[in-house]
């Protein structure tokens, strides 16, 4: 199971600066089990956002947000409400946010930090998309993770080594930062790239004791 925790509400409000209309997405998979993105948390977030003067154009809880095709098909009937929003807030893991960002041409803000993938890579198979860094940056990078899309894990822009849009380290791979640039351009948020991101807190990336060993850890302790 992918363990996540909600970002502080103030951080979420910062993301939504200048955006009045929001569509909230929850995930009935791991985020529901983490109690960070199930229906109760989505309703709670709706109340909080409305209390902060935002208009919630709609909400939906999908199982699983990391399943790109499923997200697309479940959002289609809600297209009106989604398109009316300035942006989407996804209460889910890093893979879920990236999956939503890949199907909706709007800013998708992460509402949670992913703290452990617990060995799972979600339902979006093919490549690693979340490093469970515990301090999700997807808001700044248009829903494409710089830690996994960039070979050097650079978070303030590319290294300058790309050639014809391909990575210097792995030429079979596109330059992650050129992908981020294209996405931010598409959703009209290139301004995000100018923000300085301070050094990451790698302590947040270390597995917490409760996620070490096996998933039976808590039960073993009880015996």
């Amino acid at each position: 199971m992918i363990k996540s925790e909600q970002k502080p509400f103030e951080e979420i409000l910062d993301y939504l600066e200048g955006e009045d209309k929001v569509f909230i997405l929850g995930c009935d998979g791991c985020a529901q089990a983490s109690q960070t993105g199930g229906m109760p948390q989505v309703m709670e977030m709706k109340k909080l956002l409305e209390g902060a003067g935002k208009k919630v154009t709609g909400y939906s809880v999908i199982d699983f947000l990391c399943q790109k095709a499923l997200v697309a098909s479940r959002l289609r009937p809600l297209e009106d409400k989604v398109m009316k929003a300035d942006s989407l807030l996804a209460l889910t893991c890093g893979i879920g946010v990236q999956s939503v960002a890949a199907v909706v041409k709007k800013p998708v803000h992460p509402g949670c930090n992913t703290i452990s993938l617990g060995g799972s890579r979600g339902e979006w198979q093919g490549s690693e998309r979340c490093l469970e860094c515990g301090d999700c940056l997807l808001h700044y990078t248009g829903g494409i993770c710089p830690l996994t899309a960039c070979s050097k894990r650079l978070i303030n822009g590319p290294c300058g080594g790309a050639s014809n849009g391909k990575c210097e380290v792995t030429p079979e791979k596109p330059c992650g930062w050129e992908l981020i640039y294209a996405r931010l351009k598409e959703i009209g948020r290139l301004d995000q790239l100018k923000k300085f991101i301070p050094p990451k807190d790698y302590n947040k990336m270390r597995p917490r004791p409760e996620f070490l060993s096996t998933s039976l850890w808590a039960l073993e302790q009880r015996d």
Binding site: N164, C175, E178, L193
Partner: peptide, 11 residues
């Protein structure tokens, strides 16, 4: 060699 790389360098 790409527009994205040029703009990203300036940013």
């Amino acid at each position: 060699d790409t527009e994205a790389a040029f703009e990203l360098q300036l940013i």
